[in-house]
């Protein structure tokens, strides 16, 4: 009797753990199915090629013009700008924290990086609007400070903690023997860093950059607040743009259910989903490659 009770308990526990474990898988699949079902309907109104390639996004004109090329380019431009800032800075910071900084400073820096990642993006966006945007407008003499560049700067702040933390882990994971081997050959600290440590940490650093991209491309709030949200194809980084994420966030509340606009927003969601998925997959590949060696 006692024994069967214990068995039943164990069985129940096992099932419970199994359910928790598979829940995330189920949710991902459900979300994707839902996105797909709602989004695919847009292709009754426009072709896939038109949807991805047309230059105009006028969802509430009639007939609605549903080309998301400006939005894709907006997202890419903001992301590229953010990465151009965050990747070099983040990697350099990671090297400084992992290899150069004295022990006490290292602890301080690490907690600061963590705090940076804890700042809500709406707060960063708020700072962006009140400080950065007017500053850029005056400093660069632009017609408006609400530009892709402002978005890039804000997003760089958000991507840095991810990039720093993961790069630093990768740098610390380089076997001590690698470094000692180079140092014992008379290499200076700097030479060891450049030739040996970067080499060993490279896959992890790439993964860090990829995850930074993932963080940036999915970010919504701060971008929506500082990029101006004009759905036009940008010619320079100092013009207003509108990103995929901001479009969904701004318009979903107003799109009437069942309209082409509504379905198009879901399709934008699918595009975002696929981009994030591809980025995370690439990051994973690099992280695993790093582990195998």
């Amino acid at each position: 009797m006692k024994r069967s009770l214990r068995r039943a308990k164990e069985f129940a526990l096992e099932r419970l753990l199994f359910l928790s474990g598979t829940a995330s898988v189920v949710f991902v699949v459900l979300i994707f199915v839902f996105l797909l079902r709602e989004g695919a309907a847009v292709f009754g109104h426009v072709s896939l090629g038109h949807f991805l390639g047309a230059k105009f996004w006028y969802p509430i004109s009639s007939p609605a013009k549903l080309g998301i090329l400006p939005l894709i380019l907006g997202s890419l431009l903001v992301t590229a700008g953010a990465l151009a800032i965050a990747v070099p800075l983040g990697i350099a910071a990671a090297f400084y924290i992992a290899e150069v900084a004295p022990k006490r400073l290292r602890t301080v820096l690490k907690s600061c990086v963590e705090i940076l990642s804890a700042i809500p993006s709406v707060v960063l966006g708020f700072l962006g609007i009140t400080l950065l945007v007017p500053f850029l407008k005056n400093f660069l003499g632009l017609p408006t400070g609400l530009t892709a560049f402002s978005g890039s700067l804000m997003l760089a702040f958000m991507a840095m903690p991810t990039i720093i933390t993961i790069s630093e882990d990768a740098i610390n994971a380089v076997p001590r023997e690698y470094k000692e081997g180079a140092v014992a050959l008379g290499a200076t600290h700097w030479q060891t860093l450049v030739r040996v440590v970067i080499h060993g940490a490279f896959p992890g650093i790439i993964a860090a950059a990829m995850l930074g991209i993932g963080r940036v491309i999915g970010e919504t709030m701060a971008v929506m607040m500082v990029t101006g949200n004009a759905a036009v194809i940008p010619r320079t980084i100092f013009e207003p743009v509108r990103t995929l994420t901001a479009t969904i966030a701004a318009e979903m509340g107003e799109a009437a259910q069942g309209t082409p606009h509504y379905h198009a927003l879901f399709a934008v969601g699918i595009v975002l989903f696929l981009i994030s998925f591809a980025i995370n997959l690439t990051a994973d590949l690099f992280l695993n490659r790093g582990k195998k060696r």
Binding site: P175, E177, Y178, E180, G181, A182, V183, A184, L185, G186, A187, T188, R195, V196, H199, G200
Partner: peptide, 18 residues
Amino acid sequence: EDLRKRVGMIFAMPIPLP
């Protein structure tokens, strides 16, 4: 650095550079 060029070292774990 100069010292280590004059006094080389071989470790227990042979780890070639990558």
